[in-house]
Design a protein around this nucleic acid. Structure first.
Lengths: 358, 358
DNA sequence: TCTCCCTTGGAAAGGGCTTTCCGTAGCTGG
DNA sequence: CCAGCTACGGAAAGCCCTTTCCAAGGGAGA
């Protein structure tokens, strides 16, 4: 053990315009590199109290922050997780992201987010980039399209990651061979439809989102199933209009409905954001909401809970889904293959003023 | 140069359940480590076409993704940026985050997001953690409080980062000695107030958010200034109610207004989300919107543009602010000190139906 | 007092990559 | 045909840590 020469070392490091390293701290504390590492990283090994304090003090003085990249290299794994999300400005995704960030944070994980802007080929690139971080796992939250070739490439990229020991969790993206948190879109839409029929509605228009979007498709199918359920007289789907899964998509679909003069009693938009766009367009056209045309959505976006008339919808546990995905990533079990887990999260029907009894 | 023994190496690496490294690729391609590195990382050095192709092919076969942590260690810097944000589920922040992610992505940067949940002490911890990533820069987007001691600690943490060569950009967080993108809150609120007076309003209630939140305070002050501007007869602030900067904050403030029987003609909520909460509460109380009580907000949150009555507000370029922060981080210039840049982004007044002429 | 074991500090070997430094091969020009 | 270059491959040092392995010191038991 060399003598206590902390001060000179401190000065030395202080002059350098580069972050303090563990060696700087060790020198400043007059201990070895190994000891400093043991004190600062929570190793199992004990360090004598006196040394421990000296190291801690030196680290404080030098403003030491361990270089996580170096740690990741040395340990062979990082403690980051990667997230691929379509569009963080969309409240649906930002709610899920909030759940992920919160849970990852509690687990001491750092979260890297990348946005795909709803382009599958970008998703693939992002997974490649994320793989380079050697993260503990990757969470993909999206709305898988059914372009087979791209999906296959994505699948291969993910499998490459899984084979290197990475964990994968998908949110709302069934159909890939990995752990998946999904929403019971069919069920929710089914219940919604049945409830609406029970309320007296008969002639429905569905704003069904993009044709190749699985989430949208499930909601459409479920809704259709629910309409038939009660075998009520006169139930009819008077229009199924496909458009973007966005506010503008809903707006455009409503335009089309109006232009074609379709006599719907109720519009079911497959998500809340579309429902809001549709309501705006209907209102512009002087349609009386909700009595002339009723509207229902899906998701129960928090920011939209106070619109008027209050939107009937299916509440999805979005934040919880994000959190569950992180827990799944961290939990024991297979990364892929046969034993993939599928966790379906149910939605709950929320009937509000936008669909009064008829 | 050894013989071309790519195939055996490939098999070897393929069996291992760990990611392919650069050495694996070099061996598979029958070239040296250095050459493989030069081909795959875009160094300035030329590599003979034949080798280059062999390396590329090997990398493809092995599904090689460079270990960014190792690159960061070797290069002494990462190409990540860190972002600290209060609450990603809040549409204000998610819009800014979207701008950041988009711009960072175009610049080839990876973005790590951490959420502080509006707690300054957590912001400090997060900055420390982020520093460990040795990111190119850190963006803090928040709403600085005026707790002096914590702010001082945050300042010191940021300065430590800046002294180690890191760049810092703040969004909407004036008062710290770093490059800052801010919104012209005072100006916007001033213009809004003047416009409302011109429309005939005289008795105003302000739902002013938390007392120690600078953003909220600026909007309050600007609004007050704008009210005086026209020297109109009878202009009066009948109530200033402080509460959370959230939907529930607006709701509660409206409750208080009602309970105290305050005769306001117009409620100015210092952000849109609060305005929506306030409208919900007023509506519950049977208050006629907008004719009995008019409401104005601030931000022009995209998701809320279609509510009814359409909300008068001040539109802020949120995504642009995020993008500008990234550009600032990447641009030349000082990291801190004397030459810090302040970029104020103006808001634009948007008069809508929630404040009809009176 | 001696042996044995336990505790704990330090040296050193990685971990995956970048980059400097050398050295050789091939070219130009005289 | 040779000096002087340029172009480019490879060896090796280095980046900042973690972790194994060794050795020394101290305490307990006989």
């Amino acid at each position: 053990m060399t003598s206590w020469d902390g001060e000179s070392e401190l000065t030395d490091a202080g002059n350098r315009h580069t972050a303090a390293t563990l060696i700087d701290v060790a020198n400043a504390a007059g201990v070895s590199l190994a000891t400093a590492s043991r004190v600062l990283n929570g190793s199992a090994r004990q360090v004598r109290a006196e040394y421990r304090e000296r190291v801690l003090a030196a680290a404080g003085r030098l403003n030491y922050a361990p270089n996580v990249s170096a740690q990741a290299v040395a340990r062979g794994r990082s403690n980051a997780i990667g997230v691929v999300v379509s569009d963080i400005a969309d409240p649906y995704f930002s709610a899920i992201a909030a759940g992920i960030l919160h849970e990852a944070d509690s687990a001491g994980l750092i979260t890297t987010i990348a946005i795909s802007e709803r382009v599958v080929s970008r998703e693939i690139d992002l997974v490649t980039a994320l793989r380079g971080q050697r993260p503990r796992g990757i969470i993909m939250v999206g709305s898988r399209s059914n372009d087979d070739e791209l999906t296959e490439r994505l699948r291969r990229e993910l499998i490459a990651f899984a084979e290197d020991g990475g964990r994968i969790a998908l949110v709302s993206q069934a159909g890939l061979p990995f752990d998946t948190i999904s929403f019971e879109n069919r069920e929710g839409a089914r219940e919604l439809a049945a409830a609406l029929v029970r309320r007296g509605y008969r002639r429905f228009a569905v704003f069904a989102g993009p044709e190749n979007l699985l989430t949208a498709r499930e909601r459409l199918d479920g809704f259709a199933a629910g309409l038939d359920e009660l075998r009520a007289e006169g139930v009819e789907v008077v229009a199924v209009i496909h458009s973007d899964f966005t506010r503008d998509g809903g707006y455009l679909a409503a335009s089309e409905l109006i232009d074609r003069g379709i006599p719907a009693e109720l519009v079911f938009a497959v998500n809340d954001v579309m429902a809001v766009g549709a309501m705006a367009r209907l209102r512009e056209a002087g349609v009386g909401l909700p009595h002339e045309v009723a509207v229902a959505g899906f998701d129960d976006i928090a920011t939209l809970r106070d619109i008027s008339p209050a939107l009937t919808t299916v509440r999805l546990p979005l934040e919880e889904a994000g959190a569950a995905a992180v827990r799944m990533l961290l939990g024991a079990g297979d990364a892929s293959g046969d034993a993939t887990r599928k966790v379906p999260l149910p939605g709950v029907l929320v009937i509000r003023d936008s669909t009064p009894p008829r």
